[in-house]
Write a protein that binds this DNA or RNA. Structure first.
Length: 822
RNA sequence: GCCGGUGUGAUGGAAUUGGUAGACAUACCGGACUUAAAAUCCGGAGAGGGAAACCUCGUGCCAGUUCGAGUCUGGCCACCGGCACCA
């Protein structure tokens, strides 16, 4: 029999077999429990990278495992096909973005097939296809009808040389990445979606999903629900009032100034008469639109010369313009309490504004020194606060907000850090926003006129969106009046497409609706797998979309993804693989050299999914060696012939080594089942399989029952490994004389009685330090155990001249003797 | 800056609920096979001390809780992810 492991031949054969039998074609089968396993779909950038291979192997391993466990598994694949890289490539290669994108898709599809992933390809979708995005356009028109979508002005990066809007990513040190021109900021009208309407639900429903705690915490903080008080100051010398929002009304008596954003009406008004202020505001307007930059920018401000009146003390308080106050959050103005807010403190220190402590810790706290930093704890009591003195945070919050309410100047409110989602992009390669500008105003495109199709035969040169000058696209007719109208030339943020593709997979064949009833058979996704970098934006937007779909009666569940598995990055030489660093590894080369199974095995073995994975060429070779050893083990076993047809003897009839091997077999089944099915720790599952393989290789079968045990071990090895290395497993499975495909096999079960042991080894500690090991019968009682432990020579030495104070026995693990000198 | 994570031998990692640190691999060293090399197989190995038996130290750093801490708590350091127009 052929002993050499020839992955290229085996893998092609097996893949042809799967394809011819349509093994991975999925239907809605109500006799089995369903399992929808989804991996975040790729952007078709050209070829698969290691991050994809890792992500999709994890999904495939779990899908194959769940199929063998008896579930009706859906595992689809598609393409997140709109986006900037296609435009960049188009400029570079003088090819339409569509051509580039579709070429990449066909190449990457081949690569996925070559890796043996069990996708239902009939459900494949590409988000740039009109029959996909037409439903997104349809959904958007419904959002407009419901008042969930609206227009408002927003700031964008404008490249004055290329005359185009730049993404944040395209702004490098304040300059356009291609032109090098200083980027300006422009305020333009854009479409927004009211995700904030769902803020409470998005926050509260986090409790109902089985997601990593860290991701839930990140989303929670991102939404940032806070309880606070909104109130207004009387402005000195005017009838106007200034509204502020604070989460710390308990510190209200410590206000020493008020700060407003540069875009606040008070600042704008002051600029009209004061050129310095005008210059300062202009300066602020040129600041980066990236929050990380804003947060780290040096604090700057200017006094307006105006004052508000403190509602309780009647004091005059100066109004400052400050670059750290955000116009988007609250009312764009804050009361500043430098004693108890670090940003206010830094600003006050810089501009010599007074700092007044109004909270004192209840016990001495070394960090409490208002002259060095603000004290921001909520654990103290109020001081210097007149009528509000001596109160805890909760009491002061209550008292101050009641007084504010009584004065009719404000109320307790809830605010969110979450902002509405700006979905308009001034770019070509995206889903057209289905709106027309008519002489009667903005109108959404009617259902029967959808989709608004993106013209694909387009030349992109980097200077603005080609849609604007594309007269066939841009010029249209108002169907109501028959008069000329202009199409919206903005396209959607590509997060729009990725916010509902999971649902479309479940309803892939529905031609006359966005989703049909099959969506509710499959949804929610039982396991969603993807990079941790999507923890906030993509996952929040998709959750939001799901709730909108639910409110339109398209789905019945509240959440799209029941369980979430976030995978770490693939690194080489300690940093992320990237072209610019020149440290990429092309999966294709490895597949060509070693085959798909080796690549899958290595990538699953090198690290648990959530950790970053350090690439190692040597490790790949090692994985390949293991498969070769397995191949030899199985083929040699087959060559020995079938040694018996008799039944497995009783456990006690087995020889010692056979009994041990048989126990190890069932320990391995137990561990691998738990590791793949519950923990998703494939590296330890593989380690366990390797151990069993090593034991099987060493085992010398002498009797008939020895052969029976070895045969069972070898068959089980092949099955246990099959989700990870499906080709070699399928191949060896048929060599072992089995007719049907491994995919339809049942997952092995554990024989509990095989796991029992007669003797156990315990560690013996003296004062917590390991001093010896003892082997005892499994049923030895505690008293006896301690007696044996004391007599163990390594232990006895440390007991001399000591008195035992305490004895701790952890069954089957440890005996700890706690002693002190006599 | 803010939010979230990670840190264990030469390397990737294991230790699942506070209970024998380093499973399983990789690299390395030694041996077998070979004219030789590769491949393969067998063996060794955390660091320091010791002839050995053994002993001491050891999970980023500093404290703490505990009979016992890689695991829990507090503080620090380094690196990574996200920060709303990259996907």
């Amino acid at each position: 029999m052929e002993r050499e492991y020839q992955p290229q031949i085996i893998e092609q054969e097996i893949q042809e077999y799967w394809e011819s039998k349509k093994i991975f074609k999925t239907t809605e089968d109500h006799n089995k429990p369903k399992f929808y396993c989804l991996c975040m779909f790729p952007y078709p950038s050209g070829k698969l990278h290691m991050g994809h291979v890792r992500n999709y192997t994890i999904g495939d391993v779990i899908s194959r495992f769940m199929t063998m466990k008896g579930y009706n598994v859906l595992q689809p694949m598609g393409w997140d096909a709109f986006g900037m890289p296609a435009e960049n490539a188009a400029i570079k290669n003088q090819l339409p973005p569509a051509t580039w994108t579709y070429d990449n898709i066909s190449h990457m599809r081949r690569q996925l097939k070559r890796l043996g992933f069990g996708y239902d390809w009939d459900r494949e979708l590409a988000t740039c296809a009109p029959n996909y995005y037409r439903w997104e356009q349809w959904l958007f028109t419904r959002m407009v009808d419901k008042g969930l979508a609206y227009r408002k002005k927003a700031r964008v990066n404008w490249d004055p040389v290329d005359r185009t809007v730049l993404a944040n990513e395209q702004v490098v040190d304040g300059r356009g990445w291609r032109s090098g021109a200083l980027v300006e900021k422009r305020n333009i009208d854009q479409w927004f979606i009211r995700i904030t309407d769902y803020a409470d639900e998005l926050l509260d429903d986090l409790n109902s999903v089985d997601w990593p705690e860290q991701v839930k915490t990140m989303q929670k903080n991102w939404i940032g629900r806070s309880q606070g008080v909104e109130f207004s100051f009387e402005r000195q010398g005017t009838q106007d009032r200034l509204e502020v929002y604070t989460t710390r009304p308990d510190t209200i008596m410590g206000i020493t100034y008020v700060a407003v954003a540069a875009q606040h009406p008070i600042a704008m008004k002051a600029a009209e008469t004061n050129p310095d202020i005008d210059a300062f505001i202009q300066d602020c307007a040129q600041m980066s639109v990236v929050e990380a930059d804003l947060a780290q920018a040096p604090k700057k401000g200017m006094a307006t010369g105006e004052y508000v009146i403190h509602p309780f003390t009647g004091e005059e308080i100066p109004i400052w313009i400050a670059n750290f106050v955000l116009m988007d959050y609250g009312s764009g103005a804050v009361m500043a309490v430098p004693g108890h807010d670090q940003r206010d403190w830094e600003f006050a220190t810089q501009y010599n504004l007074p700092i007044r402590p109004v909270i004192r810790p209840r016990e001495d706290d070394p960090d409490y020194d208002i002259s060095k930093q603000a004290w921001c704890e909520k654990t103290g009591v109020t001081i210097n606060s007149g009528q509000f003195d001596g109160l805890t945070f909760e009491q002061a919050f209550e008292a101050v907000s009641r007084n504010i309410k009584d004065k009719r100047i404000g109320r307790v409110t809830t605010k969110y850090r979450l902002r509405d989602w700006g979905v308009g992009r001034q770019r070509y390669w995206g889903c057209p926003i289905p709106v027309i500008h008519t002489d009667e105003g903005l109108k959404t495109v009617r259902d029967e006129d959808l989709p608004v199709t993106l013209p694909e035969d387009i030349v992109v040169d980097g200077s603005g969106s080609p849609l604007v000058g594309h007269s066939d696209f841009a010029n249209t007719v108002d169907p109501d009046t028959g008069r000329p109208a202009k199409r919206e030339t903005d396209t959607f943020d590509t997060f729009m497409e990725s916010s509902w593709y999971y649902a479309r997979f479940a309803s892939a064949f529905s031609n006359d609706a966005m989703l049909d009833q099959n969506a509710n058979y499959w949804l929610p996704v039982d396991l969603y797998i993807g990079g941790i970098e999507h923890a906030i934006l993509h996952l929040l937007y998709a959750r939001f979309f799901h709730k909108v779909l639910r409110d339109l009666d398209l789905v019945i569940s509240n959440e799209p993804f029941k369980k979430l598995l976030t995978q770490g990055m693939v690194l080489k030489d300690g940093s992320k693989m990237s072209k610019s660093k020149g440290n990429t590894v092309d999966p294709q080369e490895l597949i060509d050299q070693y085959g798909a199974d080796t690549v899958r095995l290595f990538i699953m073995f090198a690290a648990p999914p959530e950790l970053s994975l350090e690439w190692s060429d040597d490790g790949v070779a090692g994985a390949h060696r293991f498969l070769k050893r397995l191949h030899i083990l199985v083929t040699e076993h087959v060559d020995q012939g079938n040694h018996s047809t008799s039944d497995m003897p009783e456990l006690h009839e087995l020889s010692g080594p056979a009994r041990d091997l048989y126990r190890k077999l069932h320990e391995t089944i137990s561990k691998v089942t738990d590791d793949i099915g519950r923990r998703y720790h494939f590296n330890t599952a593989i380690a366990a399989v390797m151990e069993l393989t090593n034991s099987a290789t060493k085992f010398k079968a002498a009797t008939e029952s020895d052969w029976l045990v070895l045969s069972e071990v070898i068959e089980t090895l092949v099955i246990l490994l099959s989700p990870i290395t499906p080709h070699i497993s399928e191949h060896l499975w048929s060599r072992l004389g089995n007719g049907n495909s491994l995919v339809s096999m049942n997952w092995p079960t554990v024989r509990e009685d095989a796991l029992t042991r007669d003797t156990v080894t315990l560690a013996v500690q003296v004062n917590g330090k390991l001093r010896g090991r003892i082997q005892v019968a499994a049923d030895t009682d505690e008293q006896m155990l301690v007696k044996i432990a004391r007599e163990e020579p390594g232990v006895a030495r440390f007991l001399e001249g000591m008195i035992e104070k305490k004895i701790i026995v952890v069954p089957k693990k440890i005996v700890n003797l706690v002693v002190v000198p006599k």
